[in-house]
Design a protein around this nucleic acid. Structure first.
Lengths: 188, 188, 188, 188
DNA sequence: TATGAATGAGAATTCATTCAT
DNA sequence: AATGAATGAATTCTCATTCAT
């Protein structure tokens, strides 16, 4: 039941937004009662926290896999991480959208905890870029922090428009973006 | 008074979010009463609509200036539009953040009206890229729509982290991003 | 309206107790809506605080009148204060009962504020007794603090059983208690 | 287990009040579950009734012991009964406070049943005083009913302030009060 | 004996909105 | 142009109680 509530909530939060979704909405669509909700979650915010925590924890875990792979170049690592983010749109689109949009509704320690983990994810990317700069894979005249933010913005934005069931495949999207990041759009 | 309400609202919407900001919050911080608010706005949503409309209209106007300039290359135009977006963080940061984050709270015709204008803004960018592809400025093997979304994601995301009063200047940021978009990060 | 809410609340709190009385009960019996309640009071507890504050402030004010009277003996002062408390049962019975019974529902600073004033009221009585001991009106072998608590218990308890419209008049009650306190019940 | 629930409940009811204490609070602090509670008690009120009944029954029993003693004067009996009440603060303070404060939460027949027994306890005291008046131990010009209420108020109030582990011993307190009741505070 | 999932009725509170003045 | 009292619908949350196991 807890799982069912979480999943239905993600669905509704994505469709209508966190504050526009009431506990009543959630339980009604599961045909249970409010009491049931509060049996499993102590508050609406705690549910949101659960969702965030699960998402970022999973993301960090998969990022870690990539980081630990010593056999691939930094360029490959970067590509894999971009793939990681964009691939999720297919499997966890709603999840991701809730993750990116509704963090504002977390408060105090909760928001800090999540932000810390988000920062870690970002710094891990920055590290890859820095490594790539150091070993000559990447240009050395760009600020790694800003590049990282750029890549994150570019990939995260996909959650707003990309439809994995549309005419463009996820692979094409990833190729386009990797190509763009690596070589730019200008004619050499 | 109408202006004062609008401005204070933007400030509060940015700080606390649209749904977390009550009409009471707005009028309290201006030391007027709710009646005053409803004298100038027919509803909370209409205020949000006003804010959105003003923002996107202004943005489109300035974009138009750039588009009409026949003396510059498409590459220059693209740079100018990116500058346009990022520059706003200094002057209208709160405004922009409200614009990007709170569109969800518009309803029905309103949301359509704004989305149409946003789409226009995007298509205008795509047009520049297409023109650049056509005249050989840009590579011809990239999907212009996706590239456009990428650029938008990259620039919009700045609203989330870039502090125009921080150690990095807006110019450095723009340079980094233009460079990244045009030539990529890989060592040639 | 604020006054009406306060008065009806006192009535209901007395009859059913603070936690057994809902805001709904209060507004229903006044034929207004919950919104109206919250227009005047920020919370249920604040209403209770209002009631307490008004009561104890009034009590302290009247006590002060008695204390400042230099023309009467301490014995007379004591009698007047007992009269003060018991007389209230006629005019403010419900008020007093709420005051004595529901203090538990105040929290934190509120409870402290009220308790402080209650303590002041008690210490003022103790002072009278001490003065009476000093000038020989009262016996010198009694602990003034405990005697004060005793007098308070004795008078406060009246709120639990005394019916000012019953066969015993308030005057008789006061006479009995003053006599009991001053001379005891044993046959001299 | 039933005993453990009762005792923990008394503790919690005293600390937080009956309505502020949830069944959940009770079972949590015993590390059992709500089912356990309802195995032993049919309702929250029934638990409160149990507590009241046990308390007043015990009190009446001990009062009976005193009443039946034909070898002591009424004055002595009165002192013993006051001792009975005040002594309990040491052993059953919480119990007594719950008994005096939470009777309001009993309903219908329950409240009547308890009130009857309380009345009996009071009338037993009144009887002693009447006997004392009749045999010349006590003054004949005081209303015995009111005197009884006075004594009850005075002693019951101790539950609100008296700390048996404080600097004043229970014996001193009893002496002071017996002295006060018997001889008054005025200098003879 | 005891558990724990689920209920449902009701609680306090919030807030956009209306409207007579 | 502005006020402020009042509304009412919705919202989050609480909790005593039930019941199958």
């Amino acid at each position: 039941m807890k799982r069912k509530i979480t999943e239905k909530s993600i669905e509704l939060f994505e469709k209508k937004g966190f504050s526009q979704t009431s506990i009543q909405d959630i339980v009604d669509s599961l045909q249970v009662t409010k009491g049931t909700f509060y049996y499993y979650f102590s508050s609406k915010e705690q549910l949101l926290m659960d969702i965030h925590l699960e998402y970022i924890t999973d993301l960090l875990g998969r990022q870690q896999q990539i980081l630990q792979n010593d056999l691939i170049t930094n360029k490959e690592k970067l590509k894999k991480i971009m793939t990681l983010l964009i691939d999720d749109i297919k499997d966890k689109g709603a999840n991701g959208r809730v993750f990116f949009r509704e963090i504002r509704h977390l408060i105090n320690e909760n928001i800090d905890k999540i932000k810390q983990k988000r920062t870690l994810f970002r710094l891990n990317i920055e590290k890859i870029i820095q490594d790539g700069v150091n070993n000559g894979e990447f240009r050395s005249d760009l600020r790694t922090d800003m590049v990282t933010f750029g890549i994150l913005g570019l990939t995260n934005y996909c959650y707003n428009w990309f439809n994995p069931n549309g005419e463009v495949t996820t692979e094409q999207l990833i190729d386009t973006y990797v190509e763009m990041i690596l070589h730019g759009i200008i004619k050499a």
